[in-house]
Nucleic acid binder design. Sequence first.
DNA 1: AATATAAGTGACAACAATGTAACTTTAAAT
DNA 2: ATTTAAAGTTACATTGTTGTCACTTATATT
Lengths: 190, 190
Amino acid sequence: MARERKFNTVDLFQAAKQLLLEYGYDGFTFSLLADRMDVSRAALYKYYENKEELITDFMIYEMELFLHELKEIEKLNGFDQQFDFLMDFIFTKTEIHHLIKAALHVLAKLEQTNINKEKLEKLPLEMYRYLNTFILKGKEEGKLKSHIPDSLIIGFILQTVAIPNHFGVPHQEWVNSIKEIIRQGMFNNS
Amino acid sequence: MARERKFNTVDLFQAAKQLLLEYGYDGFTFSLLADRMDVSRAALYKYYENKEELITDFMIYEMELFLHELKEIEKLNGFDQQFDFLMDFIFTKTEIHHLIKAALHVLAKLEQTNINKEKLEKLPLEMYRYLNTFILKGKEEGKLKSHIPDSLIIGFILQTVAIPNHFGVPHQEWVNSIKEIIRQGMFNNS
DNA sequence: AATATAAGTGACAACAATGTAACTTTAAAT
DNA sequence: ATTTAAAGTTACATTGTTGTCACTTATATT
């Protein structure tokens, strides 16, 4: 008994993602999104009470997807292979880093009453906890230095994707160098 | 023959800095700044044509200050001491990292006509060039691995200040661990 | 004391985003 | 064919920022 929908949620999130990466959280508006979806602005209000709710919904979707894909790591044996997988994986998902940052930005402003707040707060922690088991494995296998805090190891690895390649070093060389620094540092052994 | 000024540029920049870090570039408004300075909004327009001009002026001031203080590094002898100085220095100036990011954000939107554009573009490069001589020294002394791109080494070091310390690791342990990772990596030698 | 002039203010129009309410359209169910 | 209800649109009031202009205030110079 209802009319056909002009757009689906996945397409909407796709467009929202592009706009968020292009304009940032503050630059993102319903007008922009409505235009891009060829739909009236008011139509969006049928599904989302406001910008916050739409964006938090989108972020939860995006981070769950990321976490789901990350779990492929379990299929690999041994820490070394998993380390390589993780590094390559996050470099195919550089956007997630920006989105997580945006998520923190949103969280700071979020109304206490927002339904999504709790869920959105949990997801980064879940990711950390998940990666933590990976770190633990590395330490148990004697691969990772045991005296370095787990959270720093995780943060360090995730942060590398945000290093700006101002001078256009070729991607593979860039990634390989980063892996080497993480593994053995940038100093020569003396 | 003129009335006394209610505020000076340094105080203004101080307030602007706080507001920028608190609200981000987009959240920063003349109303906010005027309120904080106990001055009418229109008064600000006597000195700056718009938000862009004020913020770019401020950023140039801030980055020049940073660069100036960084040059203390020249008083130290040998790469090892300079490395330590640099690491400690950027950790006393974590805001500069956010400001540089904001600067890039501004640059992207800046009108071609903006007088400050050229100058603002040059400063990060100047900083890179300056740090580059430091990197070169490390390579010449045989301390730094010569096959890792200079720009990555610099970016890597600068980026470490942005790693979020979600779990509140004590500052000194945090910084020391970062130094160790940068120097020798997070893997055990095998 | 008079004056010139920079410093500062208040008020206005223009613009854009937000959220809502009354309306129209479409298609499935009866 | 009629009804029903969700999908979508148009139009409006509200809010806040922006930039500008005419105006007032204060002070150094004459």
